[in-house]
């Protein structure tokens, strides 16, 4: 398969998976002991995969598509929160994935989740014009710890399979019509 076709097709699929995951997550009820809005953040997996496969910019593209989806379904504030959180966490995860081996997958997942929450919190603080929103910080930090560990573990588990699938996809023969 041509490299360009391969990229376009796989990028589209990844974006679709990311959007689907975030949609499915939004259907989950919040457990009583968790703060409102706490989500496992599984769609971060896709960003992680895109950045480990291709690097920063495609991963940012996925974050942007996710943000647009959030914007269409839940309004402008959701757009900005998703964008800011997604971009920040993508930056952090790409750096860690591609430039150091010191962190394990769990560490990368945790940092990605923290950055995601932090980005969202900043947008929330600016939108409501009040810094007491930052009172959420400790709870969100703990949630990011749990969610990040989860994404890190899942990512570690599915990475070989994804890698194989992507490779196989690249090597399928183009059909001449």
């Amino acid at each position: 398969m041509k490299k360009k076709t391969y990229f376009t097709a796989l990028f589209g699929m990844l974006a679709a998976v990311a959007v689907t995951l975030s949609f499915l997550e939004s259907l989950l009820p919040t457990a009583a002991f968790l703060p409102p809005g706490a989500k496992p953040g599984l769609s971060n997996l896709v960003n992680m995969f895109a950045s480990s496969l291709w690097g920063l910019f495609p991963a940012l593209g996925i974050a942007a598509i996710k943000a647009c989806f959030a914007g269409i379904t839940r309004g402008m504030t959701a757009f900005w929160m998703s964008l800011c959180g997604g971009v920040l966490s993508t930056f952090a995860m790409t750096l860690l994935l591609r430039h150091t081996r010191r962190f394990g997958f769990v560490g990368i997942g945790v940092i990605g989740a923290i950055c995601h929450n932090f980005g969202q919190l900043c947008v929330a603080a600016v939108t409501v014009g009040n810094r007491s929103v930052l009172g959420y910080a400790p709870v969100l930090l703990l949630c990011a710890l749990a969610a990040g560990t989860l994404t890190g573990l899942i990512f570690r588990a599915v990475l070989p399979a994804l890698q194989r699938a992507a490779d196989a996809f690249l090597h399928t023969k183009d059909r001449k019509g």
């Binding site: 930056f91 952090a92 750096l95 860690l96 430039h99 932090f118 900043c122 603080a125 600016v126 810094r131």
Partner: peptide, 26 residues
């Protein structure tokens, strides 16, 4: 390797400071 890690930390710090700035803590 060391250089790279330094770079990463610099970038993360810069981002954090930038975002703190937008909350107006300066």
């Amino acid at each position: 390797m060391q250089k790279r890690i330094g770079f990463i930390f610099a970038l993360v710090t810069a981002l954090t400071l930038f975002l703190c700035g937008c909350v107006g803590a300066r």
